[in-house]
Nucleic acid binder design. Sequence first.
DNA 1: TTGTAAGCGTTATCAA
DNA 2: TTGATAACGCTTACAA
Lengths: 357, 357
Amino acid sequence: MAAKKILPSVPAVRSAARATIADVARAAGVSKATVSRFLNHRDRLLSKDIATRVEVAVAALDYSPSPMAQALKRGRSRLIGLVVADVTNPFSVAVLRGAEKACQEAGYLLMLFNLGNDGQREREAIEALTAYQVEGFILNTLGHDGGASANAARHGRPVVLVDRRHHDMQADFVSLDNAGAVRLGARHLGDAGYRELLFVSEPIKNVSSREERAAAFRAYIGESAAAKAGLRGKSFESAVDDEAGLDQALRALCQRARTGRPGVLTSNAVVTLRVVASLARLGLQLGVDVGLVGFDDTEWSPFVGPGLSTIAQPTDELGRIAALCLIERLKGLQLPPRQILLAGTLMVRGSSQPVPA
Amino acid sequence: MAAKKILPSVPAVRSAARATIADVARAAGVSKATVSRFLNHRDRLLSKDIATRVEVAVAALDYSPSPMAQALKRGRSRLIGLVVADVTNPFSVAVLRGAEKACQEAGYLLMLFNLGNDGQREREAIEALTAYQVEGFILNTLGHDGGASANAARHGRPVVLVDRRHHDMQADFVSLDNAGAVRLGARHLGDAGYRELLFVSEPIKNVSSREERAAAFRAYIGESAAAKAGLRGKSFESAVDDEAGLDQALRALCQRARTGRPGVLTSNAVVTLRVVASLARLGLQLGVDVGLVGFDDTEWSPFVGPGLSTIAQPTDELGRIAALCLIERLKGLQLPPRQILLAGTLMVRGSSQPVPA
DNA sequence: TTGTAAGCGTTATCAA
DNA sequence: TTGATAACGCTTACAA
């Protein structure tokens, strides 16, 4: 057996429990109130002498106030609750990053609650977060919370909705300009010579962003400009496990397109992947047999097939703006609910290359 | 102008602020202590009569205790801190999901802190989380925290490390069996006829998982079995912005491989994408000119080129086990630091198809 | 300008 | 079995 190695004992910081404000007061020879004042109103009401004594004590004890105790006393916690329907969704993560940065800069900490696509937990999430005294919410959810978020709003905890509206709630709303983005994609496909279009979405199920995109597609197809250009289109809702249905829809699309080429517009990255898989099953070539433009520009988009044309969302900005809106409200801004829509950007790649004349 | 619609006023829940334990006590006509006892030791020490009175009052007021106040009093918060180096990394997100679920089931809430790959913030993160009285940490970080986590551990806040060890800390560690996974990938490439291998990693920079994978590759190549099979290999560290360097390394690989075919093993999904891009620039075909196996099985792996062969990590399990380990410690388990290594799974696709004889 | 003391919502100790 | 009461760490009237 190997000789027992003697580990160097941990540097004997003797670290007692965290220092409290009482410790600092004692060390500085002042009252707790004075320490508190030094911390919160450093400027006013403090003699130079005492101020430095406190300052020294704080440094010596490496003191920092307990946010929990502060929250309890003040009723405010410097916490912002972020509820996302699904962290697996790269869109959510990107928004999360933007929001996090803005919160951090404003001195807030983000408390994340992931629903794992289980709508049931939405109410639970908001209540848990409320219990922890979060000061406001950023919600990327369905709104099936039994009024919990509306309730929070009424209690003076502002709410900002990202990407998905809640039908029953008036709140600031930050999102992609879905209608504009759909037009961008559809027009591009048309311009590239794809004339018979199919819009493929996840099952709409009352999710506002899905509704808006689907509606925008129908509207665009109905416009005279599109009709004049000979653009026609249908929509299809693709369920996770219904590969056969999707295959069938795409086959039908190709049939209809006998004359003009078929083009597909997908409503998010997950659906894009499903369509790519289906096309592969059908033996159809991207950008040759079928054109494709998908929502959400991912890191892998350039490398699938001939490169996937996409509509990029300004995810970082969305998250950042959502956080900023919320923080403004926390600072007391009184304003009717705002709607902030950001434009998408078309990334052209091989999957929508022009149909040879 | 459209007639002004009269919105139905919000259901007049008259919702006063959250009920406190004092409210419940008053409503039930008992003392706060009794209510507290009912909540915490429902079983012992309570006359049936009083118990039901309290129960009714709790229900009527929809009371639930304030975790903040509990944390202040008990010193425990039912909070677990999760620090990840980068939420953008799909691996981190997957782990997050697993951990979150386990925590939730055990009645803990996860507080997420994302470093955004800014190592500087690691210490800050741990201190912020500590201030919020998190009871323990799950860390997927570098360990450049100036001893903050070691310090936390000493204060009785257990720490579990995921995927990345901290050189200076003894703590439970949960990770992929990197050595095994590397062998799995390398051997597979060899078996498929790719004889001249290149291991491409992110800059190692002291990150333990990167070190382990690189070391395992060197070791495997040095083994007699590999040598006997005619396997040879080198390693390359690919920096984000150094496309030229990577191109050069791959060109050199192909040169060396004149006789046997060249194969590449990449250390994570980001690097995989870089290699795919480089190969495209060089006009080399995946699975024909060059074999490729990459760490991390992503949703898009099947759709890049002929399909990317990958080594899948049991991410959900990793997160779950990390959380469970932590929770065991929180329950008082005294044990020397454990190391839990999980095996990876090889997913064979077109990028490593056998070299035709 | 500083200190005293009350109280935020809990739980735990002690009597009753 | 129940009820006062004193903390937990902090902020804030109010007094001095």
